[in-house]
């Protein structure tokens, strides 16, 4: 089980994954079909259908109010759709009847737009909490950290460049460091699907580059969905792009493909 200490963390991850679930390249992991939801008469999502394979890196773009965040809310169980279905994994399990924590345990991790880490706790504690371990109250109460968990935290910290900050309160970190810590927490969860909301917001160009690398590497072994405004960042991700508009899919394909689409141009540049 233990990977050699000098191996890249994600490679070790790969190994673990290989043991646990046989890799089925590009199999459908998440299937959203015909989903609609409205708030007080306003249709935030309108007959949205989307499917994500595993592994895959996908960018979701769209103007404000296109329903990007609501889409994430629906997948993570925060919002219940009025109609449609959301199915997950090989056994096509419906996510609609599961609670947020069940969905998270099923393997969907989410990073929020605004970095949300536990500011009054240390970086180590934040990472330890996110580590993939039994989540029940009594499991947690009687939890004794095994040595590989301690090692794993160190690896993750190195991966996100916070190894020197492990003992610090995460509230003291800079904005970019908090973003990375959150990504680190996501990786610690070891999800099959990563939903990332505007990861590059408020970052310096160097930090953006680092983030892009992190995401691309993560996407080698799992599905990663990135919601983003910034075209430049999306271009750097170099992946399949879905354009949302008024709660449904407007176009899908490579970035070059969708940016040539007249409807996309209309939506982005105005009519």
């Amino acid at each position: 089980m233990m990977a050699p200490a000098d191996a890249a963390p994600l490679a070790r991850d790969e190994a673990r994954r290989g043991e646990e679930r046989p890799r089925r390249p590009r199999s459908t992991l998440l299937e959203v079909s015909g989903v609609s939801v409205s708030f007080d008469g306003f249709r935030a999502i309108n007959n949205l259908s989307l499917s994500i394979g595993e592994p895959e890196l996908r960018a979701v773009i769209g103007p404000n109010g296109a329903g990007k965040t609501t889409f994430m809310d629906i997948v993570t169980g925060k919002t219940r759709p009025d109609e449609g279905s959301v199915t997950w994994g090989e056994r096509s399990q419906s996510l609609l009847r599961m609670s947020e924590s069940e969905i998270a345990r099923a393997g969907i991790g989410r990073k929020f737009q605004k970095p949300t880490v536990f500011e009054s706790q240390s970086v180590r504690e934040n990472l330890a909490m996110a580590l993939r371990n039994p989540r029940g109250p009594f499991d947690v109460l009687f939890y004794r950290p095994p040595t590989d968990d301690t090692g794993r935290i160190l690896e993750l910290a190195e991966e996100i460049g916070l190894a020197a900050q492990l003992g610090r309160l995460s509230g003291e970190l800079s904005h970019g460091q908090k973003q990375w810590l959150e990504i680190g927490m996501l990786l610690a969860q070891d999800p099959r699907l990563l939903l990332v909301d505007e990861p590059a917001a408020g970052m310096t160009p160097a930090e953006r580059e680092h983030t892009t690398d992190l995401l691309k590497r993560a996407a080698e072994s799992r599905a990663v969905v990135v919601v983003e405004h910034d075209m430049e960042f999306v271009r750097r991700l170099d992946c399949r792009v879905t354009v949302l508009h008024e709660g449904s899919v407007l176009a899908e394909g490579s970035l070059d493909h969708v940016t040539r689409d007249q409807r996309v141009i209309d939506v982005y540049l105005g009519r």
């Binding site: 708030f39 007080d40 306003f42 935030a44 609501t70 925060k78 919002t79």
Partner: peptide, 8 residues
């Protein structure tokens, strides 16, 4: 209150 403003 309904919708996102209600903070579901």
């Amino acid at each position: 209150l309904k919708g996102r403003a209600a903070g579901d």
